[in-house]
Structures are given as structure tokens and as C-alpha cells.
Design a protein around this nucleic acid. Sequence first.
DNA 1: CTGAAAGCGCTTACAG
DNA 2: CTGAAAGCGCTTACAG
Lengths: 321, 321
Amino acid sequence: MVAERAGTSIATVSLVVNGKDRGRVSAPIASRVRDAVDELGYVVDHAASSLARGTGDLVVLIAPDLSNPFFAEVIRGVRDTLGDRYQLVLSVTERGAQPSTADLRRFERLRPAGILVDAPAAGESLDASVPVVLLDAPDAPESAVTVDYDLSPGIDELVAHLREQGHEHVVYLDGTARVATFGIRHRMFDGACAAAGITVSELGARADLTVDAAAAATEHAIEAWHEDGVTAVVAAADTLAYGVLRVAGAMGLRVPEDLAVAGFDDLPSSSVTAPALTSVALPGAELGRAAALRLLAALDGTAVEPVALPARLVRRASTGG
Amino acid sequence: MVAERAGTSIATVSLVVNGKDRGRVSAPIASRVRDAVDELGYVVDHAASSLARGTGDLVVLIAPDLSNPFFAEVIRGVRDTLGDRYQLVLSVTERGAQPSTADLRRFERLRPAGILVDAPAAGESLDASVPVVLLDAPDAPESAVTVDYDLSPGIDELVAHLREQGHEHVVYLDGTARVATFGIRHRMFDGACAAAGITVSELGARADLTVDAAAAATEHAIEAWHEDGVTAVVAAADTLAYGVLRVAGAMGLRVPEDLAVAGFDDLPSSSVTAPALTSVALPGAELGRAAALRLLAALDGTAVEPVALPARLVRRASTGG
DNA sequence: CTGAAAGCGCTTACAG
DNA sequence: CTGAAAGCGCTTACAG
């Protein structure tokens, strides 16, 4: 520990550096230490520090592949809320994979202060030796600390809107990811359609969460959809809906006259697609913010109550909205 | 170290766990240790391990705000190349800020094996006590290990294409970020226009890298652009171009007839905008892959040569392409 | 082939 | 108010 050049002991330096010097170290010595620290550009070693105290100041956020810009929003929300008492690091899973218990284990080694897991794989236990908060994990056990969306207002609005526009037979384009929230979106959508007197085609397809994959799936199915009398397709994510739009455009179909399209997420780019996309808005930054607040509370030992952020519909041209 | 329940010493366990047991530990003991490890779910403590050996297996990638989906591609490239000998963690700067030397310092504490810095702030020294490779840092000093784009083919194609389409007076919409690559895009574009006999309007604007900010900047300037006789706008990034498209659409301008638009990056969503966007494609995943390879080489002590990935133009409807 | 011991750079009771 | 010492969980020469 180089900074003992201040002419004092290692212990005293540690106290000053960690701001625990109030009433323990005299002012002149403390400032002498601070000067030495500045001059030498000293910075406490994270490994040694977290070994000694058993835990560090890292917060790790485990998220699925970032190609969905939705996660960028979540991350921003977490970042902005965490402040600089904690250092946020991110880990992304492999493309198409969801965060799992194995990922959690890998990061427990780092002795983080806490772990945030976004859109975890369904049916994982996801417990750890440090505080964990789960984002967008509607199937999590009661005991888990979670932050979720309340999808029903958004989905109800969407289905009511489709009904108003005269749609009676629609199809659902699902994601392939094994995430609970996708299952719920699908089920709630089916339920809302049944209640509204809209039938959902048996010809539902699924695709990876990329524009290309969705376009391929759409190309494969669109003929059959047409023959089945489908007039609207609802996609589990905006990126999927983009693929539908691309294929419809390439085939010369008019949206929404020949085929209406809607998605989930309301990504920033959804206002500039051709045509602009109707979408169930899922406020990512707010999800991140709420999750970070709950982690902070858990770290402070404060009680936390469950959160469900309401989703709402954003109507745009792709459904004649 | 719980795993000494295998009935052997701590040192032996350490050897086995780290795979350094060849010719040092007998087979029966080694397998007894491995069984114990499995049973107890033991996992070596990262802090203690990196303290003891002076460095860990973490690779940190410092990137600017992820709202630009371009970075998701870069990250994917890095991830896929790094393999599982190293553990990748990401850090993102605050919105609008570029990675700086201060960020590097904050992560040196973690004793990573190496650090990757994407789109660093211009004019920073960015040296560290561990191997560092810079991505998209065309102004970096000679001594730095870097992976860059060679923009000239893409920009030359873009300008030639605009010329072919009859444009003679265009405007440039720059980003506000203090990143070297933006400066270079702008300069190269100006140079190519001059060479091709296209004049660049004095009314160039700049905006944060978001659709909203670009839309606001465009709204503010578009009237003046029109009076100035501008027929095309080239934006420093696709996200900026989306903002231009949105405003043009809202004003009832036809793209490209009334105003042509082009960007940089070729994001996945650029094929589905209204109209589809012409863009200088910057392959993000390849940038990430190249950077990871160079870091791996540096860690192995292998020599590495500079890399510059060529950019190329993707013509779409927004320029009549 | 195996184990006892030192040391990585800190933090935190505990004496003085 | 200040310092000497133990200990955090590992790794790695070094003896045996």
C-alpha cells in the first residue's frame, strides 16, 4: 500500500479512503493522507477490498442478447438509478439464450453487492447468496423479488382497437425465446380476443427476435394466413413486427388495408417504420429504474413491495390507428 | 476452502481445480477432489483468486450508451469470439458520454485480464496497466492497439451515388458526441463532395444520437435547408436519419423526390423505415470480433497487426437507390 | 506425488 | 486518536 508515504499506518489510510475517519483520525493526518492519495493516483484494489470485507460494490445486470433495443432502455434506467455508490456491470447471454441459474453462479464469484436478472429463462430457481431482483419474470416464485409489467390494460386496448377496426380473424406471431413474459402475452392476447369475439388463427408462427427471422417466418406463412382469412397480425415484439412489415411491403400488400400489423415494446424506431407501427408500449427505462430501486432497498435492508408497471397501447398507422 | 473434505490439502485442490494437476497430482486423488467439488457445488472465489495471482479472467468492454443498436452488434462479436476462457462484462457510460480514461481507471481496480474500449472520447490517453484495445478510435496514438473502419470506400460510393441521382447541394447532420469517428465521417464526406462537385450547405446541424433529438433538430432547420436549395441530407448515423425521415413524413415531403436521406451504420431496422434507408454499412459484429481477436493475441503474447474494416454503401429507396 | 507456509492488498476489531 | 495484527480465500514456490 504505497500511500503510507503519508507517514502514517496502513490502517489509517484505509479508514480515510473509506470515509470512516470521522472521529477516528485527526484532521491534519486525514488531509495528509488525502493529498498522498491524490498525488500517487492511488485507487483501492477491488479484489483485496472485497475479499477482506466479504462483498464488493459491484452490481451485475444479466440480460439476454442486446439486439433488442428494448434492453438498452432497461439498462439506462438501472444505470441512472444506481448512482455511483455501486458500479454497474452488464453481462449478456448468448444470442437467443435467456439468463439462467448457471449465469447467476458465474457472477456470484465476483462477490457483487447484488444481481439483477432481466427476462430470465422460465422455470429456473434463480436464487443466490446475494440479493437478486428479477425483471420481467412473471412466473417467478412468490419468494422472489420481482418487477413486472401489468400487460392487461395494453392488451385489452389493443384487442378493442382491432375490433373497432373491423378485424374478426387475426394471427399471432410469437417469439421463440423461452421467456415467461412471451407465454403470458400470448395467453392474454388469446383470452382478450375470445372475450371480444375475435378468433385467433391456428396458423400462428414463431421466430427468433430479429427482423430477418421474422421476415423469413412471415414469408413462409403469409400465403396461408391470407387463405385463412386473417386480416391482422399481432407480433410478440416490435422487432418481429418489422419483419412482417418488410415482407408485406415487398409483396405489395397495403398496411393496414390488406393486412394490419401490431407489436409489443414500442421501440423508438417504431414511429418511423413504413407505416408507423401500433404497439403495446412497455416502458423499459421505468422497468430498470424500479428494479434498481428495489435492489437498493434490499441492500439497505428496507422493505420492498411488488411492482407491476402498466402497459398501454400506442396507436399508429399500421392498424389504421 | 470447503472442498478439502476430499481428504487432501488445500494446495492440491487448487491445483486440480485450475487444471494444473498433470504430473503433479495422482489420478485417484484428483478424481476424489473433482467429486467433492461437484457435490459441494464449489466454485473458486474470484476476488481471492485474482488477488493471489495478480490478475483475473474478466474482460471488460466499455461502450457508450447502448441506445444505438450498433453497439449490440459489436458486443455480440466480442462475446462470440472471446469464448469461455474469459468472462466478458460490459460497462456503459452515461447517456451521451464517451468512454474516458476515468472509466478505464474504475475498471482497472477489478484486475481484469484486458479491457476493450469502444468509441472512446477524442483526445484521451487511455492507457492502463492491463492490455487495452480500442475500437473505432481513429485518432488514437500510434502506440495504441486499435481496430477501426476504413470509411473511404463507403463514403466515396455514397457521394458518387448522390451525384448520379442529380444532387448538387446537400447538407450534413452531425452527431453531438465528441467521438473521433464522427469528425472523420464529416471531414471525409466534405472532401468527397468537393471532389465530386457537390457543395455542402453551411446550414449543417447536429443532434444527440436519438430519433427524437434528430427530429427536433430537423424540424428546426428544414425550412432553411429548403430555402438554401438542399436536395439531400446525409446523417452521421442511421438513428439521426430516422429523425429526418419522421419529420419529412410528418410534413408531407416525399423521400427521395423532395428530399433524399442517407445515414451511417446500416442498422437492422434501416430496411424497414419509410422509405427504406440508404446507409454506409459499418459491420459492428466484425468490429467486435476483430477487437476480441486482438485482445486474445495480446494476452497470449502474440504479435498483432492493425486492422481497418472496409465500409460499403447499401443503396435503398431513401435516395432513389 | 503431496503438504505446510508465505503472500496477494485490503479491512476491522483490538490494544495502546 | 493511532498502529500492530489477524484474517478474507486463494495460488505458488518450496520442502519433504
